[in-house]
Each structure stands twice: as structure tokens, then as C-alpha cells.
Simulated assay, not measured.
Amino acid sequence: MNTSNATYRFINTTSFVMGNRKNAGKTTFMNWALNQIRKIESPAFATIGIDGESHDQIDGRDKPRIYTVPGDVLITSYPMLHKSSGQFRLEKVFPIKTPLGQLVVATTLRSGSIELVGPEYNEQLKELIDYIKKELKYRSIMIDGAASRLTPVSSINGSGFYYVLNIDRRNLRKALEQMQLLSVASGFKQVATNESALRIEGALTPTKISSLPKSCSTLIINDLTSVFLSFTQLKQLMKQVEVQVLNRLQLKSFVVILKDITQNEFIQLYQDKGIQTELIFNPYEHQ
């Protein structure tokens, strides 16, 4: 992707930033994306769950912070507004409590770094984002998602997600298989009227596949987050039945941060696997 032409991809859309593990680079990518939006208009942004720690509790490393500028709208907790170096106008206090305080929506008046706190449940996230869209009229929204948890994407109608992967030779094979799985599953057709189709409630697991009737030709699942299979298992299933989804989630791009692997080498491996999803390589290096 030509990063100089990236600005408009984030405008007038709600985008989640997901990752393959902790410290994958999600927050760094989100900061870059917010700066792209600011070239056109003020963004709104949030996180899923609690992000209000300056150091990672697992390895103690400094966590990248979100930087906010005047005009931005954000979701966090009331105590985090006071802790920030910025200044804010409180738009609304929501009856949603977290271990780091009650959730609020605020507009930035003076620039500063902010530690985000978000809702735990998808229904709460939808309520907050609906308020930002309908009442505050913000249309370009970024949400810092949890590592390896895609289900919140389905809670916001019409949203899509970027998937950030931190890849080295130790996890290269696993990462490519994960990319194959997500790329294929994001391409499932949205369900059409089909009386012979079989609806699978909840997760699509190897156990449920083993009990499929031989007469089944079309399988319906909720969305790609219902797939609890390896890529090999999914590929085998697709030889037997057509898989359709009730909700089609848009995988916008893979964002790849490479270590000890050259970009050309990775592109060749990616193409050899037949993956069609767009790739973004370390865009924030070219800000």
C-alpha cells in the first residue's frame, strides 16, 4: 500500500485494530491512523476493556500511549481524564463502571496523552459508539481492540477491522496460517435464502463438523468469529459444503511488523499461500 494515499481509507467508517498477540503494535498503528484522519476531520476513538496502565503487566515494558488533540472525541474513565496532561469537555457520563472508574465520552480541548478505558461487553460498546455517531455526529472512529478477540467487530454495524501481526521466524508459520484462515473466512458470502442450509449456533468446532448430515450442502454461521478451526480443517470443510455467514465482517488489511525477515521474502511466502488480503508494512515509519 502507498501510505501517502492512506488517509481516506479511515474516513466515514468505524475501524477496529486487532492483533495476533499482546504488544503486536496495535496502539502504534492506531496513533498513525488517527493522524491520517486528522488531515481531513477530527476522529473519535476508544478501546475495548481496560488499557489504563503505563507499563505492561506481563513484561514491564512501556506501553505506547494515545495522543489526543483538540477536537478529538474519546471514551475513557473519569479518573483518566484527570490523570491526563490534556484538557477535556465532558460530553456524557455513562452508567458503565470499570475497575478504573465510570466510563465517559469527552472532547479534547488541549492536547495531551490519554490512557483509554473501555467497556467490557459488546452491547455497552455499541451504546457508546451510537452516542458518538448520532449525538456528536462523528463519523470516523477507531477502536483499539483486544489481542486475538474479534467478536466486538460484529457489535458495530458496517464496521471493519485491521489485523496487526508482529512476525518473526519463530511464529512465521503460525502467523501465515492465521492470515490464511482470516482471509478465507472474511470472504464467506452473506446468507441467501436457502431452505436446505443448516444453521450452526455458536462456535463452528471440529466436533460439530463431525456430526454434519451427509445431505448438508450449505452451512450457515453467524460470522467469521464463529470459526474455531485450523486453516487445514476449514479448507477440508469447504470441500464438502459451502459456508455462508449471517454477518459479513470486513477484513480491511493485514498490518505486518517484521523482525529478522525481509519484506521481499515475506511477500513471496504470502503470495505462495495464495492470500489475497491487502498488506500494510510498518506505515508509521513513513509519517
Score class of each variant (00 low, 15 high):
3 T>D: 04
4 S>M: 11
5 N>A: 05
7 T>Q: 02
14 T>A: 01
16 F>Q: 06
17 V>W: 07
19 G>Q: 06
24 A>W: 05
26 K>Q: 01
30 M>R: 03
30 M>I: 13
37 I>P: 00
39 K>I: 02
41 E>N: 05
44 A>S: 07
44 A>F: 06
44 A>H: 02
46 A>D: 03
48 I>G: 06
49 G>V: 10
52 G>P: 03
54 S>Y: 07
58 I>F: 12
59 D>W: 12
63 K>Y: 01
64 P>Q: 11
64 P>V: 09
66 I>W: 01
67 Y>F: 15
68 T>M: 05
68 T>E: 06
70 P>L: 09
71 G>M: 04
74 L>Y: 01
76 T>A: 02
77 S>N: 02
77 S>F: 05
78 Y>W: 07
82 H>L: 14
83 K>W: 08
84 S>V: 07
85 S>Y: 07
88 F>L: 01
88 F>Y: 12
90 L>Y: 06
92 K>M: 10
94 F>T: 04
106 A>L: 04
110 R>S: 11
114 I>N: 03
117 V>E: 07
120 E>G: 00
122 N>S: 13
123 E>Q: 12
123 E>Y: 09
124 Q>I: 01
125 L>I: 01
125 L>W: 02
125 L>M: 12
125 L>S: 02
133 K>Y: 13
135 E>A: 12
137 K>T: 12
139 R>S: 14
141 I>W: 00
141 I>Q: 00
146 A>M: 14
147 A>V: 09
147 A>T: 14
149 R>C: 08
149 R>T: 10
152 P>C: 08
154 S>G: 04
157 N>P: 03
159 S>H: 03
162 Y>A: 02
162 Y>V: 04
162 Y>K: 05
163 Y>E: 03
164 V>E: 04
164 V>S: 04
165 L>S: 15
177 E>Q: 13
178 Q>P: 00
180 Q>P: 00
187 G>S: 13
193 T>N: 14
196 S>L: 12
198 L>P: 06
204 L>S: 08
209 I>S: 04
212 L>V: 09
216 C>E: 06
219 L>T: 03
220 I>P: 06
221 I>G: 02
221 I>H: 01
222 N>P: 00
223 D>Q: 07
226 S>C: 14
226 S>R: 13
228 F>M: 11
230 S>N: 01
230 S>A: 03
231 F>N: 12
237 L>P: 07
239 K>D: 15
241 V>D: 12
241 V>R: 11
242 E>F: 10
243 V>S: 10
243 V>E: 08
245 V>Q: 04
246 L>E: 15
247 N>Q: 14
248 R>A: 10
252 K>L: 06
254 F>S: 04
257 I>F: 07
258 L>S: 06
260 D>K: 09
264 N>K: 11
264 N>R: 10
268 Q>C: 09
270 Y>L: 10
273 K>D: 05
273 K>Y: 13
273 K>P: 00
273 K>V: 05
276 Q>E: 15
279 L>S: 08
279 L>E: 08
280 I>W: 12
281 F>M: 08
282 N>A: 15
284 Y>K: 08
285 E>C: 12
287 Q>Y: 12
